[in-house]
Simulated assay, not measured.
Amino acid sequence: MPVPHPTAPVGLLRPVRREVQASGGTTAYWEYGPVDAEHTLVAVHGFRGEHHGLEPVVAMLPEVRVISPDLPGFGETAPLPGRTHDLAAYAEWLSDFVAAVAPGAVILGHSFGSIVSAAAVAQGLATPRLIVVNPIGAPALQGPRGVMTRLAIFYYWAGARLPERVGTAVLRNALVVRVMSITMAKTSDRQLRRFIHDQHDTYFARFADRDVLRDAFVTSVSHDITEYAADIAVPTLLIAAVRDDITPIEAERHLVTLFTDAELVEIPDVGHLIHYETPAPAAEAIRRFLGPSARDTR
């Protein structure tokens, strides 16, 4: 039985699962909220995750229609046929997906999804606004845990080089997933930590194969939003964590200055898991950014 979130009503969500063709493959996605909502968000999850990861934030925005796909190669979405899963492939996929399902939607990306979203918008994906949560605002090797990033690079390299059965088992190892989870969580709330660990235990190993995982990881540590910020003209909201181990808050404060029209919301006492640990402040920042017509109707 899933561990409940202590504050976000995730258990009350009743999304509708759908599928659509995008970039030559079949994308699984979930639709939340009223179909006639004034605002529609397309929510792009982070590395090794899937659509479930953003549900605590979605649960705090019941008045907003949210469309949340599993990225190609993760969750219930198969890899893109015949493609290397690099940033070009993911950005093209996102543009195709939005065009097919929700043209004109606001785009939201978390962590790795923030890079994909920023790249797609910079390259022409039409959206009225862009929201990035825990944005990757600096090269990963320059972050507070650069040594840990180097260890992660070795881990994914080894998983790709070992015999396939052994390498896949290493990449799906429950102990490694738990170490990742413990490292990222900042909260001292025991129930919330249980929820976070349960989420990672349940969903972090749901990648299609080690090749997709390697490609996505290399992409995640080879790019950051600073490459695309100057080419993004739409209003942009950055929701950043003061204790983020991947992008230090100083880098986020610099990143916001690179956009034509952007604002930064800083959330204290949280790290790279804003979507799990502080969904209410994140949702409120999103609601305010969408405008006065977005009101909490709970």
Rank of each mutant, 00 (worst) to 15 (best):
M1S: 14
P4F: 13
P4T: 06
P15V: 03
V16L: 14
R18S: 13
E19C: 15
A22S: 10
S23N: 12
A28F: 09
A28M: 07
Y29W: 14
Y29K: 10
G33M: 09
V35C: 13
E38A: 07
E38G: 14
T40E: 00
T40L: 13
L41H: 06
A43H: 03
A43D: 07
G53S: 15
L54G: 01
E55R: 12
P56D: 06
V57E: 00
V58P: 00
A59C: 11
L61I: 01
V64T: 12
V64M: 03
V66P: 02
L71C: 05
F74E: 05
G75T: 02
G75D: 04
A78V: 08
P79V: 14
P79K: 00
G82C: 14
R83E: 13
Y90S: 04
A91Y: 07
E92R: 08
E92H: 04
L94H: 12
L94D: 13
F97Y: 08
A100L: 04
G104Y: 09
G104A: 05
A105E: 02
S111P: 00
A120G: 06
V121K: 05
G124E: 09
G124Q: 07
L125N: 06
T127Q: 13
P128V: 04
R129G: 01
L130Q: 02
N134M: 01
P135L: 09
I136W: 14
I136G: 01
I153Y: 08
Y155L: 11
Y155P: 03
Y155C: 11
W157T: 14
R161Q: 13
L162R: 04
L171T: 01
N173M: 12
V177H: 15
R178V: 11
V179I: 15
T183Q: 12
A185W: 03
K186P: 05
K186R: 15
R190Y: 13
R193L: 15
F195C: 09
F195G: 00
F195N: 02
Y203I: 10
R206K: 15
V212Y: 00
V218C: 05
S220W: 02
E227I: 08
A229L: 11
A229C: 12
I232Y: 13
P235D: 04
T236K: 12
L237Y: 08
I239S: 02
R243D: 12
D244P: 02
D244L: 05
P248Q: 11
R253I: 10
L255Y: 12
D261T: 10
E263K: 08
I267G: 08
G271N: 05
H272C: 06
L273C: 04
Y276A: 00
Y276H: 07
E277Y: 06
T278I: 03
T278P: 06
A280L: 10
A280H: 15
A280P: 13
A282V: 00
R287S: 00
F289W: 03
F289G: 01
G291V: 00
P292V: 01
A294M: 01
T297V: 14
R298W: 15
